[in-house]
Simulated scan of single mutants.
Amino acid sequence: MIWAGYIYVTLIGILMLFQACMAAGAPWGHLANGGRWPGQLPVPMRFAAVGQGAILGLMGWAMAARAGIVGTLPVWTFWAALGVTVMTGVANLATPSRPERRIWGPVTVLLVLCGLRLAWG
């Protein structure tokens, strides 16, 4: 079961790095938020990217706790993280942005699978 936690945390780290780069002005807007903002994100969305990165970090922490990688957290944090992961997976598979769907769709499917493995561990 611990392998699912390590995979999840690694992928979350990549997503956090992606969000940090977009917050810093990387021209990757076509790869997020349905491709609504090609190029650099507008300033309010850069702040949103920072918030999204923080949420991702909390999700990774909850999954790592469930896997036994870090200390324990309340069990509801795992279930909340799993719910957000599933919703994100659905959104990334249904987005109108083809590049976003191709890159983040498989990543979020893998996150969902790891989360489900942790749920049934």
Rank of each mutant, 00 (worst) to 15 (best):
A20Q: 09
A91M: 12
R46M: 11
T95A: 07
R36Q: 15
V90R: 02
L116N: 02
L73C: 07
A91D: 02
G51D: 04
G53R: 10
P106Y: 01
S97R: 02
R98Q: 12
V75D: 15
Q52D: 14
G68V: 06
V90S: 06
M45T: 01
A80Y: 04
T77M: 14
W79A: 06
R66F: 04
L73F: 13
P44G: 04
L58F: 12
V75H: 15
L41I: 09
M59V: 10
G83W: 10
L31R: 03
Q52E: 11
M63T: 01
R36L: 14
V112C: 11
L111V: 08
L116G: 01
N33C: 02
A81M: 14
G13R: 15
T77G: 04
G5I: 02
V50G: 00
G71N: 03
W104Y: 13
L113M: 14
C21F: 13
P74T: 08
L82K: 05
T72D: 09
R101D: 01
A65L: 10
F18I: 00
P96Y: 07
A67R: 04
A119S: 10
N33Q: 09
W28Y: 13
C114N: 09
T85C: 11
G29V: 11
R101I: 04
F18R: 05
G34M: 13
V107K: 02
P27N: 04
Y6N: 02
